[in-house]
């Protein structure tokens, strides 16, 4: 068995914590895991990814292109930047909340998040797109969008282990003073997914993206 998850985002969004959370929960659920994380210069607002590989058929920690079972994109452009990893039939969970670079690259077209989200929704058959930053903010802190997205993936049944493993790890990982707010983010995300699941994979919240 092998299950590959690629988490993509912008430095500072909590991509490393997200991958630790998934890896530890996977180990607790009895799987072998290997991760590759971006630590260092790119963490300063650059593009970052974590590769999380779960199962006995895992070799190195980097996912080859076209084999990821799940892409979790904390930011729409970063999800799109890593689409080469997505396997046929794989799923995408994407945060509609865009982070616009302060300086647009010279000669590069202006970043149009709506167009990107539209592209992702049109081209990825198994996609959940919602403004997880807003969901997290409504539940207490915008910084917990990473937790919201992983909870949503679990709630949608996209992970090879149940959501209880995730919460058990989160509870140990997160300092006590942030536990309650993370619990409400976690619960709200799962709730929002069970609501949208009835409507198919595409989230009702997708029109909220900016």
């Amino acid at each position: 068995m092998k299950f590959d998850i690629l988490i993509a985002g912008v430095g500072g969004q909590g991509v490393v914590l997200a991958s630790r959370l998934l890896a530890t929960a996977a180990m607790d659920a009895g799987f072998h895991v290997a991760t590759a994380e971006t630590i260092g210069m790119a963490q300063r607002e650059g593009s970052v990814t974590s590769h999380v590989r779960i199962g006995d058929d895992v070799y190195g920690s980097l996912i080859p292109q076209g084999t990821a079972d799940l892409i979790i994109g904390l930011e729409p452009a970063e999800a799109a930047r890593n689409l080469r990893y997505l396997r046929k039939g794989g799923s995408v969970v994407v945060n509609g909340h865009a982070i616009l670079p302060s300086t647009q690259g010279r000669g590069s077209e202006e970043y149009n998040p709506d167009r990107l989200i539209g592209f992702l929704n049109d081209n990825c058959p198994n996609i959940i797109s919602a403004d997880f930053t807003r969901l997290a903010k409504d539940a207490g802190t915008y910084k917990a969008a990473n937790v919201a997205m992983i909870a949503a993936a679990a709630g949608a049944g996209l992970l090879p282990f149940s959501q209880e493993y995730l919460w058990d790890v989160l509870e140990k990982m997160i300092p006590e003073k942030y536990r309650d707010v993370n619990r409400s983010v976690f619960d709200m995300a799962i709730e929002s997914i069970s609501y949208t699941k009835g409507m198919g994979m595409e989230s009702a919240a997708s029109n909220e993206t900016r």
Partner: peptide, 15 residues
């Protein structure tokens, strides 16, 4: 890859 990468809209450079 599942998606034809040539069709992905242009992405912001994020240094």
């Amino acid at each position: 890859p599942a998606i034809n990468l040539k069709e992905v809209p242009s992405l912001p450079i994020r240094a």
